[in-house]
């Protein structure tokens, strides 16, 4: 089903992901390993957001909420039984004796996130434009509130601890490669093409027979699945977290990566994640260097957020489609010359 250009796009996009373990291995530093792993997890989140937002044209704030659902589900399922009595004293007895392997728990977490998305989102998918964005924001608030108050499962607003670390760079990078393929595949699938048609002109697309809410629904479910998966990976990497990890700050970072890279393409998602992560780490380094050297009488704070926000604004003004624009990297003319499309 995928044509040559899409296959080429896939291989070009996984190159930087596959280089990560190599690059980090050479440097052999724990904090580099940490940055690279978080990058891969963020990449899965950004790809998930691209699946819905890029193809449907509707900004979704709820994305990080589904990450939280995946994180908590996998945490509850995979936590060692002896830790459960300590970390989650009120846990339901049927869950208290379960201890699944982390990978299985992460997959179930993704499925649960997808299921929740499927159940709550169908009526929302009829909405377009501002109404849809505001509703998704409300959905994030609802998910967040539930996470904060469902103490039996989440330990309330307090930190949930006691998870075994299971996610390493190889698992994260491997998953990211699979997710790149999944995002590309959805984009080129029948539902993906129609969803993009709806995005560009609702009236014309519906007028030729596209089922608007069902198409958006498919995109939303896949997007939530990917977010849930990333949440599970992240939970088993960071091992202790609270509901606040899945709220506005993370939403802003993920959104910034996608907007700067370009939400219309999978290439944009990959490029944005790498570019923003590298810029972020450099800025953090600069910030801490300035503070250590005491260049200013008071410490500099928030440099990373301010610069990211400014970069987002600049992108939206100068290149509203994001840096990568509307064409996948494999469709660029330079590659077309070497790999002509035989599928005419």
């Amino acid at each position: 089903m995928l044509n040559r250009q899409s296959v080429l796009t896939f291989f070009l996009l996984i190159v930087p992901i596959l280089l990560l373990p190599g690059a980090v291995g050479i440097m052999d530093q724990r904090f580099m390993q940490r940055i690279a792993t978080v990058l891969c997890i963020n990449l899965i989140l950004v790809l998930g957001l691209q699946v819905f937002m890029g193809n449907s044209g509707i900004l979704s704030f709820a994305h990080i909420g589904f990450m939280g659902i995946g994180a908590y589900t996998s945490a509850v399922l995979a936590m060692p039984v002896r830790m459960k009595s300590m970390a989650l004293p009120d846990l339901y007895s049927c869950l208290a004796t379960i201890e699944l392997s982390p990978i299985l728990a992460i997959l179930i977490g993704a499925l649960v996130a997808g299921l929740v998305a499927a159940l709550v989102s169908y009526p929302l998918m009829r909405l377009s434009d501002a109404a849809a964005v505001i509703t998704s924001f409300a959905l994030l608030v609802v998910i967040h509130t539930i996470m904060v108050h469902w103490s039996a499962l989440t330990n309330g607003p307090r930190t949930l601890f006691g998870l075994k670390s299971a996610t390493n760079l190889y698992l994260a990078a491997g998953s990211a490669v699979v997710m790149v393929a999944l995002a590309l595949f959805f984009k080129e699938s029948r539902a993906g093409v129609l969803l993009r048609a709806v995005r560009d002109d609702e009236i014309a697309a519906v007028g030729m027979g596209a089922h608007l809410s069902r198409l958006r629904w498919y995109g939303f479910i896949l997007s939530a699945l990917m977010a849930g998966f990333a949440g599970g990976l992240w939970a088993h990497f960071i091992t202790s977290f609270s509901p606040n990890a899945f709220y506005l700050k993370e939403t802003f970072v993920i959104l910034g990566m996608l907007i700067i890279g370009g939400s219309l393409t999978v290439s944009g998602a990959v490029f944005g994640t790498f570019a923003v992560t590298i810029a972020y780490e450099l800025l953090r380094f600069t910030e801490s260097s300035i503070n250590i050297a005491q260049l200013f009488p008071k410490p500099v704070v928030g440099l990373t957020e301010v610069v990211l926000a400014c970069a987002m604004i600049a992108t939206l003004i100068l290149k509203p489609g994001g840096i990568m624009g509307a064409r996948e990297i494999g469709h660029w003319n330079i590659f077309r010359k070497f790999f002509p499309d035989k599928n005419v």
Partner: peptide, 12 residues
């Protein structure tokens, strides 16, 4: 569909 190629417009 402005951000789809001509071919994709018809395919859709």
């Amino acid at each position: 569909f402005s951000n789809l190629t001509v071919s994709e417009n018809i395919e859709a």
